[in-house]
Amino acid sequence: MTLRDLKPGEAGVVASIGTKGAMKRRIMDMGVTPGTQIRVIKVAPLGDPIEVNIRGYELSLRKEEADQILINK
């Protein structure tokens, strides 16, 4: 499953990042690396993007980006 499949309040552990290149780099730079705990906080009022908590801070990303982050629940 991917980060996109998690509902607000649910948590999981990052398994791997599906994409390549600049986007992968940016996702990892922000601390989303394999083995890290990640928790979905909320979805924006218009349904996208989402807000997650990782490494003790709040990060927002679009659903299409969340789709690239594979999760082990």
């Binding site: 807000e51 927002s60 990303l61």
Partner: peptide, 10 residues
């Protein structure tokens, strides 16, 4: 031009 929304919510 790349567009992403991977940003911190401070």
């Amino acid at each position: 031009e790349p567009s992403n929304f991977i940003m911190e919510l401070p």
